[in-house]
Design a protein around this nucleic acid. Structure first.
Length: 952
RNA sequence: AGGCGCGUAGCUCAGUGGUAGAGCACUACCUUGACACGGUAGGGGUCGUAGGUUCGAAACCUAUCGCGCCUACCA
């Protein structure tokens, strides 16, 4: 059934479902991606002749080693929504995808791989190893891009880049050389962060501080030459092997006598000066005496520079002690610590230890403890670039959303240190420098300079991965060439990403963009939060609370899910951990059903993007899966009701405004929903868009409108319409609003909306896919805003609800009841009379409701409810002969009275409050008075009704 | 130590000056020809605490408690 006009995806996709079957994302979702690609949905044009406005979002390139996680799903949800929204509105919308080469991570992965093959990076040699990495990348490296398609991501794949592509490398080389020519890139020997496990330097940002680590503070004594001792404290006793001074505060009276003296190093044949330094030493802390290790501590390094101290490096690059450690050489850091403490104790110099909570610097990648180490590296001077990046945001050239992040951005850039950009890795962009082995001379150039002969060797290091990422918004478009794409798509419009890489990526793109192109790289920065588990904890393998988005899309049993990640820990324990992290999932049974990408996306879209923590609640996905089902079924119903409706040629909307109140009303509601959805997208409040669309579809369209038009559009037993005159406008309205709703929802749930849209009657001007839009226009729809219709429908709904309350109260099940509605307003009477069929259907009344003025006699066995309204109270009388007792009716009326009295009390308090009438705005006072009058009137009616109860 | 954020219904979260909202969960009734992945009607909150501003505060200000993240420091 109903397959006419449905575009057929290619033969490899599952068979066309009929709408007779229940909604099943597993059938619907695989059908449309190829269709979109075939119709060039994702394609963008950089032709100067293309007059469309551009909208550009550079996609944060996921790590080549990664696989899809919830963060990616979130990113895809937001960015795809923005891209599709713009595309449907006629923008030349470029979402530029790519993959990052992830230096350390990738090198580690491939090293582990070849370790299983029985070899090592060193055994293979550099060229062979790099070849091996490329091979690995070809085999597995684009996995994540394939997974993004499952979510319906619609980037322009034809422009996809890998950060190690030759053109990316050219851009990196060009950038490096220019920075060097400008004197910003320099080589220096200083204290840097070194990861002994990765065997490379790190930038400050790549060091994560683990707070609250339990350590101890160990005190020991240095013997002072000429007698006495000075006690120092340390959390790292082994570094004493590199001590080259003891510092005290110049004004500390305890140590005045020691100024200028020297102490003996217990293990090395050297003596250390006692120096005075007011910067390093806080006399109130500890013993007031500080050991100084310039080669292994940032503060001590600075102190060493101030006092011209010797810098003794005691560590090898792999973290073991070197020859300077004397008897401790060869031990690793932990062993050395134990050995030094023991040796100090043996010499009688240990002075005790106490527990101490400290912050441990750890390598972001390996988790190993980072060592400050003196090393020669390439550095990039940041100060000037940072100032420009700060200025650009201050001047509003780039807007950060949400704006709270501006302070963080400012603070980072105001305190920025020079960037150590070289890494001692093999996988990455080579540093374009050559060294003369003989003289130590260095040349930086785009290509190996011809004058660099046999004695010159290329720089062995590669660049920090983030260096190439910082060029991303323009290197991907052809920079340094002035390519058409660069002209067309730079600067980008929105850069959307997680706040966690504001420093790593966003700030650096700002700096490089401004530096190399003279323009900001993007107009807005949209920052979203982190997906965490339902209890608010970060997702991590350790905690066992990681959810793979594909498990949500395809469904899985908990056993399968945990089995895959199990690393020896008992599966039972892992399951318990998981259920603790997701209480709502624990209640769902044995696993996740296949929610489908649409439901997962829609759910992620309902969280405010700017929430720092986005607590994933599987139950919410289930709820949105139900929403998908609702859309499916509503469309089925609508297709049935629309019959053979077709849009006349050239017509894309109903001609003329509808006359029926419900048609006017739903058009008005749709216009309001459109406005809200647009506003949400505009302000990066995608959650507001999603909620507005949800509420409109479910509440307005399904609960009220469809229930109303069922009666209008369904033929009676005799095969005719009850009121043929209203059928054409009602069908046109239904067709228009439903088709529009699907377009409205498409950026949030692309698959389902496409599947259903393909089956709906639609104007001839629509193209082969919903993805081409057009998107419902806020401005055009605004013509349908109809306060009058909303007002009257509000009244009708209130009357209906009142009757339904009575029905429910008296447990009427499906019995039809006589209905009488009384209002002193002839308008109200006339309106409800004209809609009496609608009311009858919605409340299941027996025969037509009787509409009349108040004051008439009451039949015995009738309940009375009073609906307060701006047009005076409306009495709703429901005939319940035999079912209603005086007591129950009295209780019911008294409860209604109580409710109104409560509201009245609030109003009275407000109106009686000193100053309210004088100082509050006139409208507010008027409204309160009108409401009060209406409540009083309603109360009067209820009181009369109560008095009549005994006549029942 | 500083910065930022959060604390609203059992749960996950909206709401930024005019009588507290949604989804899920809960209660009752309904298998009615779109949907029980549904419908209808309900119950449930002194909006962390204490002050203040205001005619009026969940919202603005101050303080305070709890939680989280980030930056810096930690001999």
């Amino acid at each position: 059934m109903l397959t006419n006009g449905v575009a057929m995806p290619d033969a490899s996709t599952p068979a066309l479902p009929t709408l007779d079957q229940p909604y099943d994302p597993a059938v619907v979702e695989p059908r449309w991606y190829a269709h979109w690609e075939r119709h060039g949905v994702f394609a963008t044009s950089d032709s100067p002749a293309d007059a469309r406005p551009t909208y550009v979002v550079p996609m944060p390139p996921p790590n080549v080693t990664g696989s899809l996680h919830m963060g990616h799903a979130l990113m895809v949800t937001f960015q795809d929504a923005l891209i599709r929204w713009h595309r449907m509105r006629g923008y030349n919308a470029l979402w530029l995808p790519g993959v990052d080469h992830a230096g350390i991570a990738t090198q580690t992965v491939v090293e582990r791989l070849i370790a299983r093959e029985g070899t090592t990076r060193q055994a293979l040699g550099r060229d062979a190893f790099v070849d091996r990495v490329w091979r690995w990348r070809r085999e597995t490296g684009d996995r994540i891009l394939v997974q993004e398609r499952v979510l319906g991501a619609s980037p322009d794949w034809s422009r996809a880049k890998f950060t190690m592509d030759p053109d990316m490398t050219r851009a990196v080389t060009e950038a490096f050389v220019r920075l060097h020519e400008q004197g910003l890139m320099y080589r220096a020997t200083r204290l840097i962060n070194w990861c002994p496990e990765c065997m490379t330097a790190l930038s400050d940002l790549e060091v994560e501080n683990e707070e609250g680590a339990n350590g101890e503070i160990f005190e020991f004594a240095y013997e002072v030459e000429g007698g006495g001792e000075i006690v120092v404290a340390t959390t790292r006793p082994e570094t004493m092997l590199g001590d080259t001074a003891i510092a005290v505060h110049p004004e500390d009276p305890r140590y005045l006598a020691l100024h200028g003296k020297r102490v003996r190093h217990p293990f090395a044949y050297r003596t250390l000066p006692i120096i005075t330094d007011a910067i390093l030493v806080d006399p109130k802390f500890g013993t007031g005496a500080v050991k100084v290790t310039p080669a292994h501590d940032f503060n001590d390094f600075a102190t060493g520079k101030r006092h011209g101290l010797e810098e003794i490096n005691i560590l090898n690059l792999d973290g073991t002690m070197n020859a300077s450690a004397g008897p401790f050489a060869g031990l690793d850091r932990k062993e050395a610590r134990r050995a030094v403490k023991k040796a100090l104790a043996e010499k009688g110099l240990a002075r005790g230890a106490k527990p101490h909570v400290l912050t441990l610097p750890r390598c972001q990648r390996s988790g190993g403890v980072v060592e400050p180490m003196i090393s020669t590296q390439w550095f990039l001077r940041m100060k000037e670039m940072a100032e420009k990046a700060l200025e650009a945001v201050r001047a509003g050239k780039t807007v950060i959303v949400p704006s709270e992040w501006e302070k963080t951005y400012d603070h980072f850039l105001e305190n920025i240190q020079d960037w150590c950009v070289s890494r001692q890795l093999w996988w990455g962009h080579p540093i374009p420098a050559w060294h003369d082995e003989a003289t130590g001379a260095i040349k930086v150039a785009r290509e190996r300079p011809p004058e660099c002969g046999a004695g010159w060797t290329p720089d062995p290091d590669v660049l920090d991965t983030w260096f190439s990422s910082a060029l991303w918004p323009f290197s991907t478009l052809g920079w340094p060439q002035a390519s058409p794409a660069l002209k067309k798509f730079y600067p980008a419009t929105d850069l959307e990403t997680g706040y966690d890489i504001l420093f790593f990526w966003v700030a650096r793109m700002m700096m490089f963009g401004l530096h190399f192109t003279g323009e900001v790289p993007f107009r807005r920065v949209l920052l979203h939060g982190m997906v965490v588990d339902e209890t608010g904890d970060k997702m991590s393998k350790l905690k066992g609370n990681v959810i793979d988005p594909l498990d949500l899309v395809y469904g899985t049993t908990f056993e399968d899910m945990i089995g895959r990640g199990a690393t020896g820990a008992s599966a039972e324990e892992a399951l318990a951990k998981f259920k603790k992290a997701y209480p709502s999932a624990a209640a769902m049974g044995n696993g996740f059903p296949a929610f489908g990408a649409d439901a997962v996306r829609f759910t992620l879209a309902t969280y405010p993007p700017s929430n720092k923590r986005i607590a994933l609640a599987p139950k919410r996905i289930e709820g949105n899966r139900h929403f998908c089902n609702k859309i499916w079924n509503a469309t089925r119903l609508a297709l049935d009701l629309l019959g053979d409706f077709a849009w006349p040629d050239g017509l894309a909307a109903p001609s003329g405004a509808p006359a029926q109140i419900y048609n006017r009303w739903i058009r008005s509601r749709f216009a309001a929903a459109c406005a809200a959805v647009h506003e949400g997208f505009d302000a990066f409040r995608i959650d507001e868009s999603a909620h507005a669309a949800y509420r409109f579809f479910w509440t307005d369209l399904c609960d009220w409108y469809l229930e109303i038009v069922k009666r209008v559009l369904r033929k009676q037993a005799d095969g005719t319409f009850a009121n043929p005159a209203v059928v054409p406008e009602t069908r046109a309205t239904l067709a228009y609003v439903l088709e529009g709703s699907l377009r409205l929802l498409h950026p949030l749930m692309p698959f389902l909306t496409e599947e259903l849209w393909q089956r709906l009657p639609r104007p001839a001007s629509r193209k082969a896919t919903i993805a081409f839009g057009p998107y419902p226009s806020k401005d055009e729809e605004s013509a349908a805003v109809d306060a009058d219709a909303e007002d009257w429908m509000g009244l009708l709904k209130a009357v209906v609800s009142a009757v339904r309350s009575v029905r429910s109260e008296y447990d009427l099940k499906k019995a039809e009841v006589p209905l009488r509605v009384r209002s002193a307003s002839p308008e109200v009477v006339a309106f409800l009379r004209s809609e009496s069929e609608t009311v009858r259907t919605l409340v299941l009344s027996k025969g037509e409701p009787v509409l009349e003025a108040p004051g008439g006699p009451r039949e015995a066995g009738t309940t009375v409810s009073v609906v307060p309204s701006a047009r005076g109270p409306i009495e709703v009388l429901v005939g319940l002969k035999g079912l209603v007792s005086a007591d129950s009716e009295r209780t019911r009326i008294e409860r209604d009275e109580k409710k109104i009295k409560k509201d009245l009390a609030v109003l009275d308090k407000k109106l009686g409050a000193p100053g309210f009438v004088d100082r509050a705005p006139k409208e507010v006072v008027e409204e309160a008075r009108a409401q009060r009058a209406s409540f009083l009137e309603a109360l009067g009616r209820l009181e009369m009704a109560r008095k009549l109860v005994d006549e029942l």
